[in-house]
Design a protein around this nucleic acid. Structure first.
Length: 776
DNA sequence: ATTCGCAAAGTTTTT
DNA sequence: CTTTGCGAAT
């Protein structure tokens, strides 16, 4: 037990040794929080606490995995439950589904499917959505759920223009979910919270079962999460929460910073431990972070302390436009990698919105810098993957109408819109699930001949697949792929994108195989649960030898030697949709989170003009930049624009006012942009950016000053990696933006620098060549 | 029933 | 500039 305490500071040790009673750990960035939490779990185990009594709730699967890995090192063979709140909720729900009107094989709908259920609910309600989008309704319902307000309790707020509609739609939506034995993401928190509230004996039983509960990132929990934790720590309030109010960045999702601010009032005899010492970042980085966050008014003052060295100055750089920004950052990174100043996996670029990644991708590819993007159109969102998962959902939960609607005619089997509508009508009349309605297709008045036969065959397909639902997931999925005709449909297609899809199907199959291997008692429902709850950051690979691109939100909890934060501009950071003071403060925290991810090197940048929606617009730098200690920083800003944020922050968009002054400012910017190529100061050995406009570029090879060369012998498919720079004899240079499949079927999607755009190749057959090192 | 083409619209962050 | 949605043609 002693070795668990070795090398810990007094504060850390106090937290680790705490066993019973409520514990609040205020952990600033880089304060060794994960270490404290994992050591505390090991300590609890060493003190004889039963592993099954311990639950550690985290924000992402990734951090749960990391925590789990580290606990295993300290205390091997002790199975402590660690996972996200949503997963915890999902499993509680599975155990006690009947209490909230569900069956244990319920389905978890993703955002897209939830939306389609919502649309049906809106249709049924008879409301015409004139002044409100489905998205706004969805948001209102989500907000209610995050506050544990069930449909019958819902009361619109005074003056809420959409309140009346939401009041009608929400119950219908929830009823549809229940009828189809399905839940949305928010239900994974709300329903367990309701369950615990409405069933005291169950609450008490679980309260005793989970003797020691730990919650990470407590500043980002919402009311539903609060209710769950609260319910499980009444009789045994052995609850330890960790968090940092300054890193609360999910207010928009219903998280309430009050949970952590009020913790000491919520529980009796709270022990509070503050971890303020920072072991991560240099002094110069921490001073920047410190000064920034000090501008938040709704905050308890807190300093960042460190014994770390001063380090190099934080850079603040202004570029002409986002292309300059991307190219020069990429060039700088390429140089640093070449000089072995950093390893690629220790470099990250953060941005406020995903849309900003594109120019960076291109520039990094052009420099031959390997990278990975933690981003959007993920695997599980693709049509073919969703289709196949929908088959599995339907097999697992035959009442899942949403899944049925997805697959009933994909691949096409002659069941059209009208037929589907008749099935829906029939099902509604007889209060049947759609699958059961399909079973009666022959008896439906208007369904005769072809359509009825097609429906009957579909029912037969599902029934024959159903026989195998208890087999390993890979086998079930394999049958689906073949017997549904999905595979054949793709293979007979001549379209290029369908070739990609085949590769994705293969990848899903291997994911299923992997799941089977990891889970001895492999269950279809837990596979589907996992598929529903994985996210972008989970896919992120920290040891990949690649530079990381991600949003500031995704960066929470991570750290890198070298960090670039781009687009630090008015309207982007703070985002234009954040207008109220509290929202602005959240944006400031977001930048704070980004800054404190960096260990040694940090650069913030903005541009003078940015192309948004096709056209160039002048940009105002972020007002946050004014709050930084710029005299301690390495500032590379063209003369005249230095104080731009100071002078114009108050006069954005003159409302019917002084256009002359406004245009003048704009003009000033033009001059400055031409006058200076600011990054030359930053990076003397980088040549000035290519003066030729992009439209003049004939081919990637030409742009890179090379003549296209003859095909070389093919490289083995395994030699290719995501983010890798490649060359094609016909299309020139490009970056691999997606990989799928394996062996002879391994495919790469390449985004070319020239006019060739994005193309996909079968690696075994293509003439693609990896490009080593930097492209000159 | 499917496919193709054009037009319009839209851009925060995510479990 | 990109993606989504709808409408017309086959």
């Amino acid at each position: 037990m002693q070795e668990l305490l070795e090398g810990l500071t007094e504060a850390q040790r106090e937290a680790v040794e705490h066993v019973d009673g409520p514990l609040l750990i205020i952990a600033g960035p880089g304060s060794g929080k994960t270490r404290v939490v994992t050591h505390r779990i090991a300590h609890l185990l060493a003190r004889g606490v039963h592993p099954r009594g311990i639950v550690a709730l985290t924000f992402t699967n990734k951090s749960a995995e990391e925590m789990s890995r580290r606990v295993r090192q300290l205390a091997p063979n002790q199975a402590v439950w660690m996972g996200t709140f949503h997963r915890f909720g999902a499993q509680l729900l599975r155990r006690f589904a009947a209490l909230v009107g569900l069956a244990e094989n319920y389905s978890i709908l993703d955002v897209e499917d939830s939306r389609s259920v919502l649309k049906r609910a809106v249709d049924e309600s008879g409301h015409e959505l004139l002044y409100v989008t489905p998205g706004q309704i969805a948001h209102a319902i989500g907000e209610a759920k995050s506050r544990v307000i069930s449909p019958d309790q819902y009361q619109p707020r005074a003056g809420d223009p959409h309140g009346a509609i939401v009041r009608d739609v929400y119950p219908r939506y929830q009823a549809l979910l229940r009828e189809t034995n399905a839940v949305d993401f928010d239900d994974l928190l709300m329903l367990p919270a309701c369950m615990l509230r409405d069933h005291p004996e169950l609450r008490s039983q679980l309260d005793r079962q989970y003797t020691h509960i730990m919650v990470d990132e407590y500043q980002d929990t919402n009311l539903a999460q609060y209710a769950i934790v609260r319910a499980l720590s009444c009789e045994l309030p052995n609850l330890a929460v960790t968090g940092d109010p300054d890193q609360s960045i999910y207010g928009w999702r219903g998280a309430t910073i009050n949970n952590i601010l009020q913790f000491e009032n919520d529980y009796e005899d709270v022990r509070t431990v503050k971890l303020e010492q920072n072991y991560r970042s240099t002094r110069s980085i921490l001073r920047v972070a410190d000064e920034l966050i000090a501008h938040n008014r709704y905050r308890k003052p807190k300093r960042l302390l460190t014994d770390n060295p001063e380090g190099s100055r934080v850079r603040l750089v202004c570029y002409g436009d986002q292309r300059d920004e991307a190219r020069q950052i990429a060039a700088r990174i390429a140089n640093d990698l070449e000089d072995a100043k950093h390893r690629p996996e220790e470099v990250a670029i953060f941005y406020r919105v995903n849309a900003l990644s594109r120019s960076l991708e291109m520039a990094l590819a052009a420099e031959g810098v390997p990278f990975q993007i933690v981003h959007g159109v993920e695997f599980y969102q693709r049509k073919e993957v969703k289709d196949l998962l929908a088959y599995l959902h339907l097999l697992n939960n035959p009442r899942n109408d949403t899944a049925l609607l997805r697959v009933i005619n994909s691949p096409p089997r002659g069941i059209g819109e009208r037929t589907v509508q008749r099935l829906i009508d029939h099902g509604r009349q007889r209060r049947l699930s759609l699958l059961d309605a399909c079973r009666e297709a022959g008896a439906i008045e208007k369904l005769k001949g072809r359509a009825a036969v097609a429906v009957a065959r579909f029912v037969h397909l599902i029934d024959s697949l159903s026989i195998h639902v208890h087999r390993p997931v890979e086998e079930i999925l394999g049958r689906v792929v073949v017997e549904s005709g999905y595979k054949q449909h793709l293979e007979s297609s001549t379209r290029e994108e369908d070739q990609d899809r085949i590769a994705n199907v293969d990848e899903l199959l291997s994911a299923a195989r992997e799941f089977d291997e990891q889970h001895a008692d492999s269950q279809l429902d837990s596979f589907l649960e996992q598929a529903a709850l994985v996210n972008d950051v989970d896919e992120w690979d920290s040891g990949s030898g690649r530079v990381t691109l991600m949003t500031l939100h995704a960066a929470k909890g991570l750290e890198f030697d070298c960090v670039y934060i781009v687009g630090v501009e008015q309207g982007l950071l703070p985002h234009e949709r954040s207008r109220e003071e509290l929202e602005i403060e959240e944006e400031r925290r977001l930048l704070f989170v980004g800054i404190t991810r960096a260990r040694h090197d940090l650069q913030l940048s903005y541009v003078l003009r940015r192309a948004t929606r096709g056209s160039m617009r002048s940009v105002i730098s972020s007002p946050f930049l004014v709050e930084l200690p710029r005299d301690e920083m390495d500032v590379h800003v063209p003369p005249g624009t230095y104080n731009y944020a100071d002078t114009t922050a108050s006069c954005e968009a003159p409302p019917g006012g002084d256009w002359d002054e406004y245009n003048q400012l704009d003009h000033q910017l033009d001059e400055v942009a031409e006058f200076e190529q600011p990054a030359r100061d930053v990076n003397d050995d980088v040549p000035p950016p290519d003066a030729a406009p992009a439209t003049a570029v004939q081919s990637a090879a030409e742009m890179l000053g090379e003549t296209p060369c003859a095909p070389e012998p093919a490289a083995p498919p395994e030699a290719f990696e995501h983010g890798m720079m490649v060359r094609h004899p016909e299309y020139g240079h490009g970056a691999i933006i997606a990989l799928s499949g394996s062996g002879l079927k391994r495919q790469a999607t390449v985004r070319f620098l020239g006019p060739a755009g994005t193309r996909t190749f079968r690696l075994a057959k293509s003439a693609l060549q990896p490009v080593k090192g930097k492209v000159r």
